[in-house]
Design a binder for these strands. Structure first.
Lengths: 152, 152
DNA sequence: CTGACTGCAAAATGTTTGCAGATTC
DNA sequence: GAATCTGCAAACATTTTGCAGTCAG
């Protein structure tokens, strides 16, 4: 854990963020306990693990971490916001199972290319994009078991 | 206007919605005054035009109209929700200008096709999807004038 | 006439903010 | 020691809800 902690500290410093107990906790917790998570999940998890951080600090820190590229933020179509650690992971899109809430990732370079093309056609300079496919995952299609979403 | 009014009434009936003064007003106003709109814009516009409808009714009605396929609802990546009339218009995606808020539409069949392909690969049954490109529109790239968003 | 719809005001949700004191650099 | 954090509680924006009265079918 010491090693990892250090690396989190470094990552904060690299981005010009002050290193505080709270930020180390939030970043490491987000990276080690979650794949994708909602703000309230992080809040609850930190609390369960006995790490005291105020709601305000969590939100402020999440915003910083997103801004500095350590986390990504995504919005589901139902005004829910989730985050994911970046960790040098490639850009990717999401499929969200409407049945169990599971989130799958995928990349499709060709789609990216086509988007750029469309933008060029419209004189639009793309900065970022969101592609989400809502549907039913393999497991739910089979078992039909509406298992509880873990989002993690 | 009488003709249009009738058609709105019909459209409500067709979908099994009761026809009320408020619903007629909301649907016709949404269809005639807006391309894309936010709930609060509709609320304000109705008010400006002297149509009294309570906030609660507007929200409840928007939900009904979306459910019955007369409007579509979309979420921007910053937890803002906008609506658009359906009116038999084709499915399309959106480009959102982060500078002036303008919303452009586009379709790219090839992208749709590739999405289906990816889903098949993952055993995922697609139900719907969202593709939004955030960026800077032609006008803003030129003039740099951060004009006020009209969203209409 | 009954169930569905409406307005109102209050509640809920999820996130942000002002402030005073603590902390980092 | 200056600028930046933090916690707290209050504020916020948006949407939803309970309730009692009204209206469509």
């Amino acid at each position: 854990m010491g090693r990892l902690e250090e690396s989190y500290e470094e990552r904060l410093k690299e981005r010009g963020l002050r290193v505080t107990r709270e930020r180390r906790m939030i970043l490491s917790h987000a990276c080690e306990h979650f794949g994708h998570f909602y703000a309230h999940e992080l809040l609850e998890s930190l609390d369960r693990h006995g790490f005291r951080v105020s709601r305000a600090t969590v939100y402020r820190t999440l915003a910083h971490l997103v801004e500095k590229g350590l986390l990504r933020r995504h919005e589901l179509g139902d005004r829910k916001t989730f985050y994911e650690p970046v960790l040098g992971r490639e850009h990717h899109e999401h499929m969200v199972c409407v049945c169990c809430g599971k989130i799958l990732e995928f990349i499709q370079d060709e789609i990216e290319r086509l988007q750029d093309q469309v933008c060029r056609q419209h004189g639009f300079r793309p900065l970022s994009h969101t592609l989400q496919i809502q549907g039913i995952c393999r497991t739910c299609r089979r078992g039909g078991r509406g298992e509880i979403a873990s989002h993690g």
